[in-house]
Design a protein around this nucleic acid. Structure first.
Lengths: 214, 214, 214, 214
DNA sequence: GATGAATGAGCATTCATTCAT
DNA sequence: CATGAATGAATGCTCATTCAT
């Protein structure tokens, strides 16, 4: 009996705890996504989460740690987003296409999350442990495409001529470049009236790639 | 006569003025390139330029404006760097290759300048006039490649099938992506022991492009 | 019967209580001795004692009160240290010498404890009751020397000319001064190469004293 | 003419500057003397001096630096106080007595300044240069007594038996002890009704010293 | 009794910018 | 023109203490 009560109380406490943490992370997420790391202050987070300064530092030991949580969330979201798109019986060609298009779609549908991911977490003072978790997630996000390119090269009998790692990085990287320029708008002046659609450009990039490796 | 004297005085004044501005910009250049925007303070610039706080704000109305000048310098440097590499009698293919490789070389030889250019000047509060000058320079930097791609497509009889603007943006953008990832090191964990060389990847990207459009 | 049970329970409770208090004091002792009052935080004490924040404040009503306990311990240690050195059949002269030398040895062998005692407990907000306990201990530490000086004066037939209380305070006080300067190192610049030994200076002070009162 | 005006303006500016510095130092002096280093905040100093936060940091680059100024003031005051008491034609004996009594009088008349000097400046992060100035002043304050003791020993034909440096340090140190205990009131409980006068105790200490070295 | 969550004032210092002279 | 004095909001973070459960 007593144990039951204890248990219930412990559960309530734990849920209370999670609620607070969520309060803080929600506030932080909203602010970091909107204003970025530097422009968001701890006080902003306190105000937004309706918690005191001390409370925030009770649950997280630094601003960077809060950021790391949000970063990991975004990264995980990306991984999940990508993974749900693949199906086992897709052709390698189809998987390459899906991978790249999904990446772009993630940027379009979750621009703020993508902006968070844009910041190199290597500059923040984050524990090694968390960083290696990030690295793991990045590998996870990258693997499907890497595999697909490997399979494709095999099928085309080109695996001796090309390195699948190099080619897959090249592909992802070219999408990064598209996203980067879309964000920074460096070509705004050149494209004045007719902004090229990201989808179309990704398509072209895929076409070129597949055409060249036939 | 009197007018002559006035003129001489005005000229001297003007040269004094330019001297001061140069003093400030030299200091700012040195500091921004070395430490970036946020890490450089106005006081740093004053100390370095041996001018007073007030003097700096007399010639420039904000820190952002000073930055804009340095930004423009870097952009111009990039344009010049690219333009000196082209020669009129190169084949279109050669010009495409030269354009992309030169861009990468600029990043490698002028990493700090490239970092300056990385900041989206749209976030800084800079006057429209200056921004349009930036845009002009970007167009100038981009034009040779754009032309080369146009010529190449013509030669290959593909100008109806492909848009030269789209393709050239695609090419530049893929280099941007390579540079972006080189800077941010997102693939560090994947490439642990064997960092891929930028030159090699650019080469592969060019090969693929030309192979596909043959 | 029931009373017996109650008694047993009460005893167990009391022993639990003492255990907790000891836990806290052990942690506090370790930390205060090592880092001093200001540099030690309540959270440090909680961590070290493996007790919660609330528990510490349940047993002690403030950080100062905990400090007072440690202070008293150190004071008691000093008293014990001094008292073990005396033997009843020592000459008065010998007892004076022993008293002063023992004091210096306590400082040398228990520097950290002596540093604790250095803080004027009057600045901390401590209850009158505890302060009077401190005072009692100080009297206890002082008495042997006071007596010895009294005896010595009597033997030399100088008890009418000198006040034993004044002289004994003068003696202790001169040792305090030596210790104080040894700690603060005010003479560092004057003594650059050859730091005077405490033992030697105490010896000289004793010699002078005895020489003068012969 | 123009130069004259410039000069006047420069002077006014300089005096304005000194006025501000004095404003800050006056406020700091008052507060440090009253509450000590730790308990005085920069904001206190701003409030008291009716200057803004930034203004204080314009003239001094840290709290420690402000403190160092006050410390040096007090030290210099002590040196001056001591030096005015000596006269060339005093006997060595008289000079010893004067030196020690003057030291005590400084404490009595400038208790707060003496409290400032009590803090070991070695713990604060103060530039080497300033610290060596402090050291110089301490030497200056100490020298007259050192010389007097040297002369006295010579006169008594004891210079082979005793080291003047050791003896003079012993003397000063014993006064330090008296002052230290007067401040900390460790003997309060022992002396309850009849607090011994500092003057009297210094007198006794001097008597003993001279008596022993005759 | 005991827990640990919550408080919020407090800290030294920085910095872009303004403005009287 | 040029100076440098002055502003004051802002920063991340700490800590003794309180209190609901």
């Amino acid at each position: 009996m007593n144990d039951d009560i204890k248990n219930v109380l412990a559960q309530r406490k734990e849920s209370e705890r999670k609620k607070r943490i969520n309060q803080i992370l929600s506030a932080a997420r909203k602010l970091f996504l909107k204003k970025g790391y530097e422009q968001t202050t701890i006080r902003d987070i306190c105000r937004e989460s309706r918690l005191s300064n001390g409370a925030v530092f009770f649950y997280f030991k630094s601003k960077a740690e809060i950021y790391a949580h949000i970063y990991e969330e975004c990264l995980r979201k990306l991984v999940d987003f990508i993974n749900t798109q693949y199906s086992r019986n897709m052709s390698s060609k189809k998987r390459i296409e899906t991978g790249l298009r999904t990446y772009v779609r993630f940027y379009q549908e979750h621009t703020q999350e993508m902006n968070i991911l844009d910041i190199s977490y290597q500059t923040l003072s984050i524990s090694e442990q968390i960083i290696s978790r990030f690295d793991q997630l990045i590998i996870e996000a990258f693997k499907p495409l890497h595999d697909a390119v490997g399979d494709y090269l095999e099928e085309q009998g080109l695996s001796k001529k090309f390195d699948p790692l190099e080619l897959s990085i090249l592909l992802v990287t070219s999408i990064d470049g598209l996203i980067y320029n879309h964000r920074q708008q460096f070509f705004k002046s050149i494209l004045k009236d007719t902004p090229l659609s990201l989808e179309r450009m990704v398509g072209t990039q895929i076409d070129i790639f597949l055409q060249a490796l036939k």
